[in-house]
Amino acid sequence: MCLAIPSKIVEINDNMGKIDVAGVQREASLLLLEDPRVGDWVIVHAGFAIQKIDEATAQESLRYLREAAQLLVEDEDPDAAATG
């Protein structure tokens, strides 16, 4: 029942938003969202937008993930691996 892909709010009429997910437009209720704005990326579940994606956090956590993954792999010392 979860739609994992975030959608973008492209239009707001009262409590209803028009949302775009990968080029497909649908309606979603904005009743559960604090301060919805056109341009927000949101998670939509069962016809309701339930959360905004925090853009700054998204960028930061992706950067962290990339760095951490790379470090962990580069770190690998083939001689030490056998002893764990």
Binding site: L32, L33, I50, Q51, D54, S61
Partner: peptide
């Protein structure tokens, strides 16, 4: 963290 906070969606 891009979607989940410590306190969640207070309005919902």
């Amino acid at each position: 963290p891009r979607a989940v906070s410590d306190t969640g969606n207070a309005k919902a």
